[in-house]
Design a protein around this nucleic acid. Structure first.
Lengths: 156, 156
DNA sequence: TATTGTTATACTCTATAACTATA
DNA sequence: TATAGTTATAGAGTATAACAATA
């Protein structure tokens, strides 16, 4: 049987919920001067010594996007670039004391926004939702379809 | 209890699944020369006589984005702009015969991509997932938080 | 005065390419 | 030769502003 039209479908539901959640998360983090990327880098950099490339990989960012993000963290006094002792090409992102404090706050904000979003769900459905999304992520929605993107021209 | 770190959270899961599904949908629709927006406009325009503004509202697009989308549909011979008999400012988007045929195909593609995505889920979880997402959409994830965007300067 | 659709374009975001220093 | 990080900028996507026609 064909699905009824005008009924929210999976695409709409995922697009809508992820978009709204993202705006709420951005707004909440903005109150302490962070973007979601800055939060992501702070948290991962706190866990252990990591280079920009490693942090970019973890946060699924381009290395050039990471440059901008680390610039912002440095400007805010939350992190510092330090030369790696192992590889003089690489830079370790060291979180400052203030950065660690802010990271604690931002993690609380992230958790709170998630909690608040899920409050409209009955208890048992929350676990099922997260589990189902996890399964999709590992199943047919693991890898992106490639879009035939035109290559960019060389710089003049 | 604080959530364990490095565990996929709601933000990651929604972002990831919606992004992957979107790439798959784009790739699948591209095979018949459509974008998701073109499909969306075609389907809604087929249901009843609708103006660009109404279609923009339904598809959550800016009116200027709608202009581009309708241009593409016209160029592909799938739809035509016709003056509204009620309001001479407005234009009805009329789907051509070929457009209706393509809309049928694109709807099949959309349904197939959704079906395929959900195959990794056990039967009972599918309904729960869709229901839970629906509830989020109507609950705390109904309306976007507003981001303080700087106003754009006037044209020179 | 407000609204529909159009055009032009400003702005954001992201990624590519080229580069330097190092491996 | 390959990789880490930087810089500059191209390109896509989108929205704002201004406009003409009409309400």
């Amino acid at each position: 049987m064909a699905p009824k039209r005008n009924e929210p479908d999976l695409s709409f539901l995922l697009d809508h919920t992820s978009h709204i959640l993202r705006t709420q998360m951005s707004a909440a983090l903005a109150e302490i001067g962070l973007t979601a990327r800055m939060h992501c880098v702070l948290v991962h950099a706190l866990e252990e010594e990591r280079t920009q490339a490693q942090l970019a990989e973890l946060g699924d960012m381009d290395k050039t996007t990471m440059v901008v993000t680390v610039d912002a963290l440095e400007a805010a006094g939350l992190a510092e670039r330090r030369p790696s002792s192992r590889d003089r090409r690489a830079r370790i992102i060291a979180v400052t004391e203030e950065g660690a404090r802010i990271a604690g706050q931002s993690q609380e904000i992230v958790d709170r926004v998630h909690r608040e979003a899920l409050t409209s769900l009955p208890e048992p459905d929350r676990a099922t939702l997260l589990q189902a999304l996890n399964q999709l992520t590992e199943g047919h929605l693991a890898t992106p379809a490639e879009s035939p993107r035109p290559a960019r021209r060389a710089r003049q």
